[in-house]
């Protein structure tokens, strides 16, 4: 198979075999999203560059730990970028990736369906869905995900009870899921 036509998952399999060209191609495909995500969280070009470099180095070193049945390659890479960015924000050296603790979990049958949903969505769909959420829910989710604040910190910043923050996160994510599923249904109708 010609590498530049290979799927992300096939590229990661090639990286497991220490194929540098595969890593280069994977970087080319996801560099913009990875850098944009790091920059959004860190608000520093140099920090964002460091995080993206560390993340792809991690992909190179830990390609064997990628589990295609658990997530898409894009989600895996962006998850590494995100965790490294948040660690940098929080000043933490390292930590166990939450992915590791999900390994033993039961995955509902909807996982494949959602993979299909995710593949059909673009940035505009996600932005629109976020904008459709009640503003408090959107802000709470964004403060946690992009800025790395904990629920306790958000409770203090927004001056609302901790229970309210918990509810906004959980309900907001469920609403977001419903909205995004709706986006793909509209796409299917179109």
């Amino acid at each position: 198979m010609v590498l530049d036509q290979a799927s992300d998952e096939a590229l990661i399999a090639a990286i497991q075999g220490r194929d540098v060209v595969a890593l280069e191609l994977l970087y080319e495909r996801h560099r913009v999203l990875a850098y944009s995500l790091a920059l959004r969280s860190l608000a520093s070009e140099s920090d964002a560059e460091d995080v993206v470099q560390e993340a792809f180095l991690n992909v190179w070193r830990a390609a064997l730990t990628y589990r295609p049945e658990r997530s898409t390659a894009r989600s895996w890479i962006l998850s590494i970028v995100h965790h490294r960015a948040i660690d940098k924000l929080r000043g933490r050296k390292s930590r166990v990736q939450p992915v590791a603790l999900e390994e033993g979990m039961n995955v509902p049958d909807s996982a494949d369906v959602w993979r299909e949903v995710a593949n059909n969505l673009n940035g505009e769909d996600v932005r629109l869905a976020l904008q459709t959420l009640p503003v408090e829910q959107r802000q709470t989710i964004e403060l946690a995900y992009f800025q790395g604040y904990t629920q306790t910190q958000i409770s203090e910043m927004m001056d609302v009870p901790l229970g309210t923050v918990k509810g906004r996160m959980r309900i907001g994510l469920h609403k977001l899921k419903t909205l995004l599923e709706g986006s793909t249904q509209e796409l299917a109708i179109d």
Binding site: S71, L78, A118, G123, L173, K177
Partner: peptide, 10 residues
């Protein structure tokens, strides 16, 4: 998977 899609909004 919903959280995994948040980076697309950037």
């Amino acid at each position: 998977p919903v959280v995994d899609l948040l980076p697309l909004a950037v």
